[in-house]
């Protein structure tokens, strides 16, 4: 079976962003960019399915500016077989990303689409579920375990109260949580090999989808500043402060 893995280029998770002085957005100039951590886990899961003989081909797809080809190359170095870049300079709502991915799904007919549960920049947590709705597929979100079993896939999900396992008809959508696996590092030979793997580039506006935004970003501000408080010298002092100064314990 084919597995499709949508990946997103985002700010590196170790970087703390700053808001631009004019409050128009965050400042991404000269900031280190990377593959969204949840997408990296998605690629790893797909590659493991291939190594286990369950998947036959792993296709990575990314929507965005030319630079996201870097992240597609990373996915190829991690073991994806080929890549599709859907190029656009626009910042798209998750709904429009999902509509573009729907076109890719229609063309490629994957049995499984594995996405990240959340982009660490927009913190949307929407695309996988939207794609599932548009393609009328079942979804296993926030997955910590994925087991393909005949024409079904069992997905164990991280939910508020603990874990929940659901059985989904294939084809299906899975979104990854952090514990699903630990992604490998790309080896140098694999990085070299990735340069020769196929990458198909298509223009986002060639799909006949209205990509105009549904939401407008009016302003971006820094969060309320939290000042460091004091260092207490002892447990006695801590308990005293919590009782008498902060009044949060009695």
């Amino acid at each position: 079976m084919k597995v499709l893995v949508p990946i997103k280029r985002v700010i590196d998770y170790n970087v703390k962003v700053r808001v631009k002085a004019d409050n128009s957005n965050v400042d991404l100039a000269n900031v280190k960019m990377a593959i969204n951590p949840f997408c990296e886990i998605a690629v790893e899961e797909a590659v493991r399915l291939k190594e286990a003989g369950t998947a036959t081909e792993v296709i990575a797809v990314s929507i965005g500016a030319k630079a996201c080809q870097e992240q597609l190359r990373t996915a190829l170095a991690l073991g994806a077989d080929r890549a599709i870049h859907i190029e656009t300079e626009l910042t798209l709502d998750a709904l429009n990303i999902a509509k573009l991915l729907q076109k890719v799904v229609e063309e490629e007919q994957p049995q499984l689409v594995i996405l990240g549960k959340q982009s660490i920049d927009s913190d949307n947590n929407q695309t996988g579920q939207m794609l599932a709705a548009l393609t009328n597929m079942a979804q296993g979100t926030f997955a910590s375990e994925v087991k393909v079993d005949g024409d079904k896939v069992n997905v164990t999900r991280e939910v508020d109260g603990g874990l929940q396992t659901v059985a989904l008809n294939l084809p299906a959508i899975v979104t990854t949580d952090l514990r699903l696996n630990e992604p490998r590092y790309a080896s140098l030979p694999n990085i070299m090999k990735a340069k020769r793997k196929p990458m198909d580039v298509k223009a986002a506006d060639g799909f006949g989808i209205d990509l105009s935004p549904r939401t407008q970003l009016l302003k971006v501000t820094p969060p309320a500043d939290r000042q460091a408080g004091i260092i207490v010298e002892s447990i006695d002092e801590l308990v005293e402060k919590l009782k008498n100064e902060a009044k949060v314990i009695s």
Partner: peptide
Amino acid sequence: NAIATVQS
């Protein structure tokens, strides 16, 4: 680390 105001 940033707070966005968005209009739908």
